[in-house]
Design a protein around this nucleic acid. Structure first.
Lengths: 218, 218
DNA sequence: AAGCCCTTGTGATCGTGTTCACATTCACAT
DNA sequence: ATGTGAATGTGAACACGATCACAAGGGCTT
């Protein structure tokens, strides 16, 4: 059983479980069943159990899973050693909101560097971080050992910045510009695209209503 | 061939194609091949062609797809009639950034109503919207024909607000609170969880580096 | 108008992940 | 101790979606 034998979707779901378990801890829950965890994560209970079974036996039959232990196990599997430093490029509306969003730190991330090319923003301190000029940012990011950049620049400049970061050997980008398009191999990129998510949601919601109506009518 | 025979993942990808095509239009591209579109959306070319084949023949052999026509077809399939009005609940850092994020309108969405329970925020106009008190918001939202709410309240109050909105018969929620947990049937919910996305990205990025190293070593 | 090149569209095949169903095992009460 | 109820862990069966490979067909050049 190597890492390659484990469904990639199982790995992805581990992050969802991780998140759900932190919430359960916060509300003081000590034990959780696969059924309950499945509800929270919107998957089936069998999926939950099978996912964990790839890595060991974490539960107690007849009882469920100890929330804290399970969380520790997942943290170990994912090798998730918080706190992790990240950099922010682009201090517009979105970037500023992220800098002020103190909750990241609770969740194991810290924006350690912030960059903008607008001279009026450079030098300003937002939250606990001082905005720097984008010149030489690749080097600053790498020398601090940061692997991940949050990209919150205008859509038009995003592809250029992303490519230059890729050249510097950065590992991953979380972008708020939906139009980034193709990236070279070796760098992972995820786009947060709220409009697209809203469109998906609306589609599924309307489909569900329509199906419900049909069931009523005949 | 009914809607039920079409893979749900095909439907989800249509939104990704939609987004990519709008970008291509903006940069003036008139024709796109399945190969190029696949690159942009990070899927395989065969997947792209098969996805479209469920709905008709949209391309020209030897040439590719006309970007504008394809976009129109997808819009028709998804029944995506912009502009769509949505409501915002919670005008903190995130909510304010969203209100100022004028790009939504370009993308077919408009925040038509905004609510906060903090009396100091009520009455203020941000962007083109005046913040209202949360009292009676369910009714105001429904009477305007809005199906989707963006939930940007503190994590602790999110579950309560979500449940009360569900009771009002709302169709969908896009939440920024990761801890929402289970919802009754009949309402769709999606959580935007940046920390989780970052954790996923880092995992995959590091895995990729490790695999690359192994390949070099032996 | 004929031939070539290019890309689509698609049935057949393959692989992967999910579901099913139940044996297993634990906690607890009596 | 022993029985009961409850939830886990898991092999086998199943279903679904992705890939493959190629025939079909449009455009362009000569």
């Amino acid at each position: 059983m190597t890492i390659k034998d484990i469904p990639s979707q199982t790995i992805d779901r581990l992050f969802t479980y991780f998140r759900a378990l932190t919430c359960l801890i916060r509300e003081g829950t000590e034990t959780v069943s696969s059924k309950r965890l499945a509800e929270i994560c919107r998957v089936s209970a069998a999926v939950v159990r099978k996912d964990f079974s790839y890595f060991g036996e974490f539960g107690t039959r007849g009882v469920g899973y100890n929330v804290k232990d399970l969380l520790d196990n997942i943290r170990r599997i994912l090798d998730f050693d918080s706190p992790t430093e990240v950099a922010l490029v682009g201090v517009g509306n979105v970037g500023r909101a992220l800098l002020q969003h103190s909750q990241f730190e609770l969740e194991g991330f810290k924006i350690a560097l912030a960059f903008d090319k607008d001279p009026r923003k450079v030098g300003h301190k937002i939250g606990s971080v001082t905005v720097q000029d984008t010149k030489g940012m690749g080097k600053k990011i790498r020398s601090r050992g940061i692997d991940l950049v949050i990209l919150a620049v205008p859509d038009s400049t995003a592809p250029g910045v992303a490519k230059s970061l890729a050249k510097e050997g950065l590992g991953a980008i979380l972008s708020f510009s939906p139009c980034d398009l193709a990236m070279p191999d070796g760098i992972k990129i995820t786009c947060v695209d709220l409009s697209m998510e809203m469109a998906r949601l609306l589609y599924h919601s309307r489909l569900q209503s329509r199906l419900a109506e049909m069931r009523l009518e005949g």
